Structure formats: C-alpha cells, structure tokens
Simulated assay, not measured.
Amino acid sequence: MPADTAAANGPADAGAPLFSARIREASWSRHQGLDPSADADAVKDPGVFDRLFDGSLSVDDYTRWHAQQYFVYEAIEAAAARFADDAVAGPFVFPELARVPALEADLRFLMGPKWRSGIEPLPATRAYVDRIDAVSADWPGGYIAHAYTRYLGDLSGGQAFGKAARRNFGFEAEGASFYEFADIKSPKAFKEEYRSRLDAVDLPEADKARVIEEVLLAYDHNGAVLAALGEGLGRNPFEPKVIAAICHHMNIDHVADTLVICQGAGGQRGAEAARMTGFDGEGADFAVLVDGAEVAVRVQWAGPLSERAEVRPEIVRLFTESKAALENA
C-alpha cells in the first residue's frame, strides 16, 4: 500500500467515512439477509446455511454447494492472475487467499478422482460467474468488489461454516479445507490490513461508488445461488460421487452414444457434440454443442429412478430408442 496515497487522500476526506466503512454499511442489510440467525421469527423453509448449522444438511447437498463455489472462485482467481501487477487491484491479490486448490482437494475427497465430470454450474452460478468475468475483464474495481465480498466473508462467518461442517460430517482436514487459511495466522489482523488498503485505494469517487454497487450485486448473486441450491435440498437420490463416475464414463467411453441420445431423445438433431453434466431421479442433463454454442438439454427418464443399478438400463433404453428414431427419420 503506497504511503503517500493515504496521506494525499487524508486532508481532502477529513471527517468523511472511510471507504471500508462505507462498503460495510451499504452491504449490511444484504449480509443480514444471508444470515440464518438474522430474523429468527421469520417463517421460511430452511436453506443451506440453516441446515448446515442445525445439522440436517446432508453431505451430498454440502458437496453440491461446495461444487458451485468452485466455479465462483475459479472466476475470481482467474481475475486475480490478470490483476496481480495492477497498481490499483494488485494490492488486493493475496496468494494466501486462493481457494481453488482447497476446493479441488475437497471435491476430490468428497466425490473421488472423477469429480470434475460430475459438477456443472447452476444457471444462477453461471450468471454470477459471467458477471465476475465481465466486470473484472479490465476494471480493477470489479475484481476488488468480488474479492472483498467473498474472501472477507470466508475469514469471518465462513469460519463458522467450517466448524459446522467438521462437526456434522466428521471432517478432519479434506472436505472442509476450503475454510482453512493456513498462511493467515491472524484473520483479524489480516482483515484490518485489507480494510486499510481499501481506505487508501487510488480510485476516483465515481469508481468507489461503483465498487459499492458491485459488492451489493455480488451479495445478490450469492443469494440467488443459495436459493437455487435450497430448492434442490434432499431431492437428488444419487450421491455426487455416483453422478461424477457415470458422467465420466459416458463422456469418456460413450461419447458417440451420448451424442445420439441428445440428437434423438433430446430433440437436438443438429447437435455437433454432447456431454452428460448430471442426473437425478427424474432425468439426465446434458450440455450440447449446436451451431457453435453450448445449450442445456434435459431428458426425462421413463419413470423415477432411485438406485445406481437403474441408471444403466435407462441410458441403454434412451440410446436404443434415439438411434432407431434417427435412422427412421
């Protein structure tokens, strides 16, 4: 943090709230809205946070939440790499904050070595990632806003999430390593330093106001992801590791068959490529390349499934019927 920046801004801003305080004040209501204890008397369905703290969140739904976070941090840390040497955003790029390696380790532990084949961003997550990519493409303030919102949250309330996950699921390290910041000895001191850098950041007032608006938008996107996850709590009878293994098998060993299913049962006759991205008791999800763009396709099972052994025969049926339909078209 350049010492002369703070000195130069000091006299002109005498008596005005510090930038970090302005961000905290503006985002307080959003923060409270995500806090399950903020309104204990409100009538609502328990969400991800509520179930984590009361011990009713399943390890499968915890894993699905972890997977969505992976995509968000992947985007933020790609932006960090771009801004590492930037005069404005560079002071907010801390290697010790990086979460992607920990998330990868956790997901490998939770889902097995084929974990990457079994995760796909929800539409709300994709919108969040697209926003991070767009606003931090060439604007330092965009990176600062999204990094601040996520990382300082992880060092604050996120620590309670980690404790709850370790308590509920018996994790010792992997599984909840996302919440461990081994290279930060004092989260309190680190957060104070981070806020001091915010107070000294060399941004014009218009950009500071824009950063605050972007922080609020980051909270809204995070809330949308949590709401989407909340809608699916307890509804998928298949473990994430099972989904990852079957998706990997289809996408590596049965690439042509997957494409046939999407062209036939999926109704995408012009599909150029396809991959299975997930499934539940009602149907399977695919990402299909059509005219150079990837589109989501949902194919329903003939009836509800609940056991791993039921999935293969249903996929064989879909392939057989799709192949026949394409040949007779």
Rank of each mutant, 00 (worst) to 15 (best):
F109P: 00
D154T: 12
F83Q: 06
E174M: 02
S136E: 06
A42K: 09
G270W: 06
E307K: 01
F94P: 03
R126V: 05
M1F: 12
Y73T: 04
G270N: 12
G90I: 07
A67S: 10
G15D: 04
F19T: 08
R312C: 01
P36E: 08
A84Y: 06
A3S: 13
G47A: 00
R195F: 01
V129K: 02
P123S: 08
K114V: 05
A21H: 11
R126P: 07
W301N: 14
A67C: 02
W301Y: 09
D106K: 00
I144N: 07
D280S: 06
S306T: 15
L122N: 00
H221F: 13
A173M: 10
G223Y: 11
D202L: 11
H66R: 10
R150C: 07
F319T: 11
L155H: 04
S37F: 15
T63H: 00
L110G: 04
G162M: 04
K44N: 05
Y148P: 06
A102I: 08
F49C: 12
F92W: 01
E272D: 05
L110H: 02
Q68F: 04
G153D: 09
L198V: 01
A87H: 12
P313W: 00
Y194R: 13
A14R: 06
L122Q: 10
P237N: 05
R51H: 01
F92V: 01
D291F: 00
P187K: 09
Q159P: 11
L52W: 06
D199C: 08
A160F: 09
A274P: 02
F161Q: 12
V72N: 02
Y151A: 05
I132K: 07
I252K: 08
L152P: 06
V100F: 05
D291Q: 05
N328S: 15
G234E: 02
A98D: 04
D183R: 01
V88K: 01
C247Y: 00
P91Q: 05
I184K: 12
A105V: 02
G281K: 05
A329F: 08
F71Q: 01
V316M: 11
D86W: 12
A228L: 00
A79R: 15
R210W: 13
A182L: 11
F238G: 10
K191R: 14
A102V: 01
A182I: 05
L217N: 08
H254F: 10
